[in-house]
């Protein structure tokens, strides 16, 4: 056996290495550089200290992110389970139907929710028919923002959980039933622990985009529910304070690293579940 990586392999990976250093690693350092400097490029902690004003924003983002992740989990878990109980040929079609909406642009789907939720929207009209309409509609509420997050990222929860569930060994489940486990016990003590890797990757795949979104909160929250993503977006696109924007991004990155580290403690298997699309 050869000991060293062959010349051919080194040549093959070289362009990617250069690319990754220039366009992945250096930009991350650029974020740190901007976060710790002022507009003149001098070292300054001003932008970092300004983060104190954003504690409520960060708190709200985390709260909405957690809420939408929890709702996605509650909705997706039984969905994935029922799906995995279907016939193989049906499963393929049904899972394709879960992925299909993701190919329609996220912005236009979110805009469509605006049409559904607004005062003269379809939902309020239907509810008025049965006497439950509200004069203000549902748009521009915190609930609408969470709904938008749940809607957009639900497939990211369903797909990894389903991918683990569909590979579960039916014999294990049968054995548990044969040994006297009732439905509930089989679910909580056999199926759930085995599906944990899928759950963990589903949670990260929903939490990360929910916490960092700016589009959904802008459109469905009507500007009254500013999230950390909105704060970053406005610093870069309208206020032009790149330093503050960078320090907000830095804190967002750190928050996500921490939550991923916490999640990874629940599984030691890092490549199971994961992406199936």
């Amino acid at each position: 056996m050869k000991k060293k990586t062959s010349f051919f392999a080194r040549t093959a990976v070289a362009p990617h290495m250069v690319w990754a250093v220039v366009f992945i690693v250096i930009p991350l350092f650029a974020v740190i550089y901007y976060a710790f400097t002022d507009a003149q490029g001098r070292f300054s902690l001003e932008s970092i200290l300004q983060l104190r004003d954003y504690i409520p924003t960060i708190g709200l983002s985390l709260w909405f992110g957690l809420l939408s992740t929890a709702i996605c989990f509650i909705l997706a878990y039984p969905f994935a389970y029922f799906l995995s109980q279907k016939k193989d040929s049906q499963q393929k079609t049904l899972i394709m139907l879960v992925m299909l909406p993701m190919w329609m642009n996220l912005l236009i789907r979110t805009y469509s929710w605006m049409l559904i939720l607004e005062r003269n929207g379809i939902l309020n009209k239907l509810l008025t028919l049965i006497g439950l309409g509200t004069p203000n509609g549902f748009l521009n509420t915190g609930g609408a923002v969470v709904l938008g997050m749940v809607y957009n990222y639900l497939p990211y929860m369903i797909l990894p959980i389903y991918s683990v569930m569909s590979k579960l060994d039916n014999n294990v489940i049968q054995a548990a039933q044969d040994l006297g486990g009732n439905r509930f016990n089989v679910l909580t003590r056999v199926i759930f622990p085995l599906s944990l890797p899928g759950v963990v990757s589903g949670i990260t795949m929903v939490f990360v985009p929910s916490v960092s979104t700016f589009y959904i909160s802008q459109k469905l929250g009507g500007g009254s529910f500013l999230l950390i993503g909105d704060a970053i977006e406005s610093q870069f696109q309208s206020v032009n304070n790149f330093n503050l924007g960078a320090s907000l991004s830095l804190i967002l990155m750190i928050l996500i690293l921490i939550s991923m580290a916490i999640m990874n403690r629940f599984t030691d298997d890092d490549d199971a579940g994961g992406l199936i699309v």
């Binding site: 990617h16 250093v21 930009p27 974020v31 901007y34 985009p209 970053i232 960078a246 996500i256």
Partner: peptide
């Protein structure tokens, strides 16, 4: 190491990937 660096854009929120490259 190569794999973790490669996966950064997948793990990072899009907004951070976007602004980090913009800053560069």
């Amino acid at each position: 190491t190569t794999m973790s660096i490669t996966n950064v854009p997948m793990m990072n929120p899009d907004i951070v990937t976007g602004i980090s490259m913009m800053l560069l």
